[in-house]
């Protein structure tokens, strides 16, 4: 009975962040639970813990990569940060402001500063609006540029994204996937954002087009001093574009640190397995990979203790009961695993 009660309550305790000017985004213990409703009265009987206490921050002008398998909650993190979903717990500071405390009007005014690019270039463009309208409508609505400079601004953005002015009159269905993704990027950038969540922007594209889009994103970052949260399941892409990387597993951020640290020295067993799973285009290159057993448990009913313990090769008794805390093993390299529990004790 007590258990049941507990399961429908969201624990929300976190230490409020002390804002650091360097960071454009600071996230602490962010939680997003989706209620599972059942019965005639649609009572909440449980939660899908899509994001379950994620803490990280992103420095201005850098790219943070967020990797993980499908269903690990990386997309939810992206959307909750933008307040497209209301959070269930924790805190999100954008430029030091807690955006989840904004009212609707303030939020709308803030929207242009934080943009999102989606995975599916087909469903992310309204099929019945011409491209020019898609790109410019929000600019016009927010009156970001004076009307006399409006056309130039749009043309400029489109040009930067590799689109021609005559594309304005066309409809999305006339474009290929790569082109559509450029339109999405142009739509986001037309609003002069500071921060862009790239939600698997290249996953649906062909390899040669992927490279074009990745290059475009990196060029634009340079030009506009953008900050990216780059969400992808493709480690090689994340590795290429990011400066910091977070690895998510079942709603938890299991490892988080600079790209160099993570790739040179992956600490969490899941990160190690993930890295070794990437197929390398070299015949016979990698045959001794770590193959994880089983599949990802349901986030509605995650395992107790460390969520990875069901698939972990180094699973200890402790992992099955106690949830590991995120700890900083190296400077700016955080990991949540019981394997490294003793080490700080030894050193201290």
């Amino acid at each position: 009975m007590a258990d049941k009660f507990k399961s429908t309550r969201i624990v929300d305790d976190y230490t409020p962040i002390v804002h650091n000017e360097e960071n454009i985004l600071e996230v602490v213990q962010l939680k997003k639970y989706f209620p599972i409703k059942s019965g005639l009265l649609q009572r909440v009987v449980g939660y899908v813990k899509a994001v379950d206490g994620v803490t990280f921050n992103i420095k201005r002008g850098t790219t943070m990569g967020l990797v993980g398998e499908s269903g690990c909650g990386k997309t939810t993190v992206g959307r909750t940060i933008l307040r497209l979903y209301e959070k269930s717990g924790g805190q999100v500071l954008f430029n030091g402001q807690d955006i989840h405390k904004y009212n609707a009007k303030e939020m709308r005014d803030l929207r242009p500063k934080m943009q999102i690019i989606f995975q599916d270039p087909y469903s992310s463009l309204s099929p019945r609006l011409p491209v020019g309208e898609i790109i410019s409508e929000a600019v016009r609505e927010h009156e970001l540029v004076p009307s006399e400079a409006f056309e130039d601004h749009i043309d400029n953005i489109m040009n930067k994204c590799g689109l021609q002015p005559y594309h304005k009159d066309r409809y999305p269905h006339e474009f290929s996937g790569g082109q559509r993704q450029r339109i999405c990027i142009a739509r986001a950038l037309a609003l002069n954002p500071e921060f862009v969540v790239c939600d698997e922007p290249v996953s649906a594209l062909d390899v040669s087009i992927q490279a074009q889009i990745i290059n475009l994103l990196m060029d634009l970052q340079e030009q506009f001093n953008l900050t990216y949260l780059f969400i992808s399941h493709d480690l090689s892409v994340v590795e290429h574009i990011s400066s910091t990387i977070g690895v998510m597993y079942l709603g938890d951020l299991v490892e988080y640190g600079s790209k160099k640290d993570i790739f040179a020295n992956p600490l969490h067993p899941y990160t190690q397995a993930l890295f070794s799973a990437i197929p390398v285009p070299e015949p016979g290159a990698k045959m001794n990979r770590i193959v994880l057993e089983g599949s990802i448990p349901s986030p509605a009913n995650p395992p107790r203790g460390c969520k990875f313990h069901t698939r972990c090769a180094y699973c200890m008794d402790r992992c099955k009961v106690e949830e590991p805390l995120q700890r900083e093993l190296e400077p700016d390299h955080f990991v949540a695993c019981h394997l490294y529990d003793q080490e700080p004790e030894k050193t201290s």
């Binding site: 959307r79 933008l82 497209l84 939020m107 709308r108 005014d109 803030l110 929207r111 242009p112 934080m114 943009q115 999102i116 989606f118 992310s124 309204s126 409508e137 929000a138 609505e141 927010h142 999405c184 739509r187 986001a188 609003l191």
Partner: peptide
């Protein structure tokens, strides 16, 4: 979602 994100 994009329309919401752009603050329309």
């Amino acid at each position: 979602v994009a329309a919401e994100a752009t603050g329309l």
